[in-house]
Computed example of a mutant assay.
Amino acid sequence: MTTIHAGAAGTWTLGDRTVNRLGLGAMRLISKADGSPSDRAQAVEVLQQAVELGVNHIDTASFYFSSLRSANELINTALAPYPDDLVLTTKVGTGRDPSGAFIGAHTKEELRGQVEENIRQLGLDRLDVVNLRIGLDLERGEGSLKARFEALAELREEGLIRHLGISNVGLEHVEEALSIAPVVCVQNQYGLTIRREDDAIRQVCAERGIAFVPFFSVGGGPAGVTAVADAPEEAADRAVAEVAARHGASPSQVRLAWTLHQGPHVLAIPGTGNPAHLRENVAAAALRLTEEDLALLG
C-alpha cells in the first residue's frame, strides 16, 4: 500500500458535487480522544495537509466546539478561501447552547438559526450539504422528521442550502425524507461491528443512488454481524489483526478499507487531530481487500 491520496478509493457525487470517497470528520479537531484540549496549530496543520492529500469532503457542525476550540472556526482559518472542489457537510437539528448543553431545533426558525450559524462560522454564502440529525443520542427515537425536513427543504429553495441529507436515522426516515426532497447522503454510525442492522439502509442507499456515510467506523462497538458467533468483538479484532498482517497495514486501516468495500456509494469520514494518523487514514484509500479478507472479516 504505497499510494497516499484520498482519490485512491474513487469518487462519488453528492448532488452536483464530486468528492473523493475518503474524507475527514472534524469533531476530533477540537479535543483529543481522552477529552483533553487539542493543539490549535496541529489542528490547522491536519486540515491543510488533508486537502493536500486529496481530501475534498469534510464533515463538521457548529456544535463541534469545546471551551477552547471550534471546528468550524478552525476550518475557516485553515482553508479559506476554500478550494473549488471542497465540499463542507454540516448538521442541524441537534445543537448546543453557549454553555455546551445539547438542544434540539424543531421549528423552521430554529433550524434557520442553526443553518445561518454554520454559514457565519464557515464564512460561506450557502452550505454545500446540510444533514438533518435527529435525536440527541443514538436511539433514533424521535419519530417523524417530516416537519423539520420540510423546513430545511424550504431553506434550500431560499438558497441557503445546496443539498440535503439525514443523519442518525432509521430506514423509515429515508423513505419519509425522499418523499419531501432529494436526499444526497445518509450519515449513521456504522462499522465492521457497529450497527450492522444498518446494512439494510446501506443497501437502500445503493439502490437510490444516495451516499451512505458512516461515522465512528474505525472503532469497535456493540456486537454486530461478524464471521464468528462467539465473542463477536474479540473475534473481529482477531480477524482484523490477521488481515492487517497480510497487508502490512494497521487495524484502523483495515476497518476503514472494509467500510469503503461496502459499496461505491459508501464514503468514509475518519476523524483525527494528528497529522500522522491523518496520513495513515488517507493511505487506507489504497488498501484493496481480497475476497478471502472480506469473508474472514464478515
Rank of each mutant, 00 (worst) to 15 (best):
V183N: 03
E172N: 09
A245S: 11
E280A: 07
D293H: 09
V115Q: 00
E142G: 10
Q48E: 10
L267V: 14
N118W: 10
P83R: 09
L256N: 04
G95V: 06
L88A: 11
V129D: 01
R120F: 05
G7K: 12
E142A: 09
G219L: 15
E110G: 11
G93T: 01
L296W: 07
T3C: 14
T3H: 13
V169E: 03
I194V: 12
S217Q: 14
G224I: 12
V184A: 15
L86C: 03
L160Y: 10
H57Y: 12
L86S: 04
E157I: 11
S252C: 14
R126S: 09
D85W: 09
V186Y: 12
V218S: 07
D85P: 15
E73K: 15
I180D: 03
A206M: 07
D97L: 07
E280R: 03
A8W: 04
Q42N: 02
I210G: 01
L278H: 14
N118L: 05
R126F: 11
V44F: 04
E150Q: 13
E175D: 15
T60V: 08
M1C: 08
L74Q: 07
S167T: 00
H57D: 09
H173R: 13
G23K: 01
A295T: 13
G143H: 06
S217V: 13
F149P: 02
